[in-house]
Design a protein around this nucleic acid. Structure first.
Length: 272
DNA sequence: AAACATGTTTCCCA
DNA sequence: GTGGGAAACATGTT
């Protein structure tokens, strides 16, 4: 789940519940998700106030009253939750922040690919991870500059968080479908018009997804996402799922690009 | 029951 | 340094 729109949705959830609250306790149920020493985290958190939240790409930040930030990265299966009684702790809660109000915020992560760490600042973290500009903030010009030096395939380039931060596998497929560009085009060969379409599609897909709180099933019918996982009307003997929203007779094709499952419409997104 | 999975990092190779 | 491919991580779902 956690690509940029999910993380933005989580951030808003945490913002409402946590800002102006004090951290009363830091409970670790599974150390595996900690990227900073447990005691260091506890010392940094307990007694501090949460002054605000922010997000960069797929990373969510809780700002602390001493200026440091708690960085949440949700890996592949991370989620957030809130509860009051231990008996109501969500399944797979790995870490819980107990707030002064008595509410407990859960960092939920079945597969434990997510990480919690402390950073000096958002900027310090961005530098350490060499993260590019947020995918919602990147300009057409910045996108153009970054991609026009790339000889790699377009899809892997867009997934590279150093280039721009926040795009994940599902979003990139949707963006490329909306922009009508094939994922295996060489990044540097896009035309001016294609760079513009690409930028517009990134904005459209991210804004739409955030508006729907990343609840993919409620996305517009014009989105490719509906032809994915939950739509298991695949034609027997093929790897296709359903049909292109624009060409009702054309089956969406599943391939692998850069090792990742990739869905395209062969008519909308002609190869090379 | 084997296959597949939304992310990131690392290693090996050209 | 650049880019590709595969593996590893840990575990749930189909």
């Amino acid at each position: 789940m956690p690509e940029l729109p999910e993380v933005e949705t989580y951030r808003r959830f945490l913002h409402e519940l946590a800002v102006e609250e004090t951290v009363a306790a830091f409970e670790v149920k599974d150390r595996h998700v900690l990227a900073t020493d447990e005691q260091v985290l506890r010392t940094a958190l307990v007694g501090r106030r949460i002054t605000g939240t922010s997000r960069l790409g797929k990373n969510c930040f809780l700002h602390l009253s001493d200026g440091h930030v708690l960085v949440l990265h949700f890996g592949m299966t991370g989620d957030v939750g809130a509860y009051r009684d231990e008996a109501d702790a969500p399944r797979f809660t790995r870490v819980a922040l107990h707030l002064g109000s008595g509410l407990r915020l859960a960092f939920i992560d079945p597969r434990k690919f997510g990480r919690i760490r402390l950073a000096e600042s958002v900027e310090a973290y961005q530098q350490a991870k060499k993260l590019g500009p947020d995918a919602l903030a990147i300009t057409t010009k910045q996108l153009h500059t970054a991609l026009s030096r790339r000889k790699s395939l377009l899809k892997p380039a867009l997934l590279d968080q150093h280039l721009t931060a926040g795009l994940g596998n599902w979003i990139v497929d949707e963006v490329l479908f909306q922009a009508r560009i094939h994922p295996e085009r060489v990044a540097a060969t896009l035309t001016e018009a294609e760079f513009s379409s690409l930028h517009a599609a990134i904005q459209l897909v991210l804004r739409t997804a955030i508006k729907h709180e990343a609840n993919y099933r409620t996305f517009p019918a014009s989105f490719l996402i509906h032809a994915r996982e939950w739509d298991d009307s695949a034609t027997p003997g093929t790897d296709a799922h359903r049909f292109c929203p624009r060409h009702r007779d054309t089956e969406i094709v599943k391939t692998y690009v850069g090792g990742r499952a990739t869905y395209t419409c062969p008519i909308c997104q002609p190869e090379i």
